[in-house]
Computed example of a mutant assay.
Amino acid sequence: MIRKGSARLSPRALKQVHGNLVVSGITSRGLQPVRDLLLSCTVSFHGGMDYARRLFDGIPPPGPDFFMHNAMLRGYAHAGASHAAFAVYSRMETVDLRPDGFTFCYLLRACCAGIGVPACSSAGWQVHAVVVKLGFLEDAFVRNALINMHAKCGDLGVAGMLLGEASERDIVAWSAVIAGHACRGNLDMARQMFDQCRHKDIVCSNVMLGAYAKHGEMEKARDLAV
């Protein structure tokens, strides 16, 4: 029932499923139903993270597993609850659960959510250090998340260095750095990088067009669109 369109379940439906699990013994059929329910809570409705946290904290010993921690990180990252995301990660460390690439992607997204640039940069550098230490820098998704985080936090030199280590076909990475320069009004640098990108797609083009439009450079936007 949970897996058939979990993102469409209402708060009432989720609570009914939870109630049935409690009545039948929340772990009597293994942890998979609890995993599915927790994931549903983190993606289904506004305010679902409060309910997800109550479910997460109420899981009997040995407690939430690795998947459940990642589900909470994902939910908090998308909700912009950066401090809560880092609290969950600290718990992972406490119970000796080794992170994976998704863990760091969620944490890096959380770095850009709900906190100012100095705090974003500080938290992001801490995650960056752990990524390097644990050998996840070769993971393309993690590297792109790092590029995006550094670009949004204003560390464009670092973002550019990481971009140099990425594939030239990695449009996500290029778009993140272009957007980082554009957000700070560096339109000439953004355009220079846009022109250097050999494998532009519609997303990359829209980043540059949006930058011109935001700064009132409508003539340049029209020239680019032609």
Rank of each mutant, 00 (worst) to 15 (best):
L156T: 03
A151S: 05
A176R: 05
N148Q: 07
A179T: 09
V158T: 04
A159L: 06
M161K: 06
G160F: 08
C183I: 11
V177T: 03
R184Y: 15
E168Y: 05
L162P: 02
K152R: 13
G180R: 04
E168N: 04
G160A: 07
E165L: 13
A151Y: 00
C183P: 00
V177P: 03
I171W: 15
H150I: 01
A159F: 03
G160E: 13
L162M: 11
R184H: 14
D170Y: 11
M161R: 11
N148L: 12
N148G: 01
M149F: 09
M149K: 05
G157I: 04
D155Y: 11
A166F: 10
E165Q: 07
K152L: 14
S167C: 08
M161E: 12
K152W: 11
D170M: 06
M149Q: 08
C183R: 14
R169S: 07
K152I: 05
G157E: 09
A176F: 02
R184A: 05
A166I: 10
G160M: 15
C153D: 02
D170V: 03
I178L: 12
I147T: 03
A182D: 05
G185E: 12
L156V: 05
A159D: 00
L162N: 01
G180W: 02
G154M: 14
L146T: 06
E165H: 05
G164S: 11
M149H: 03
C183D: 12
A159C: 06
V177Y: 06
D155L: 13
A182P: 04
I147E: 05
G164Q: 10
C183A: 13
E165S: 01
A166Y: 12
M149W: 07
L156C: 04
H181E: 13
E165D: 06
A159P: 00
C153A: 15
G154E: 12
C153F: 07
C183L: 15
A173C: 09
A145D: 12
E168C: 02
G157Y: 02
G160V: 08
G180Q: 11
G185T: 07
G160Y: 09
R184L: 15
H150G: 00
C153V: 05
H150Y: 15
G164F: 10
G180M: 11
L146Q: 04
G180I: 11
L162F: 07
K152N: 08
E165C: 03
E165V: 02
G164C: 06
W174F: 13
A159V: 02
V172T: 05
S175N: 07
A166K: 08
W174D: 02
G185A: 15
C183Q: 15
K152G: 00
H150V: 02
V158K: 04
C183G: 02
R184W: 14
M161S: 04
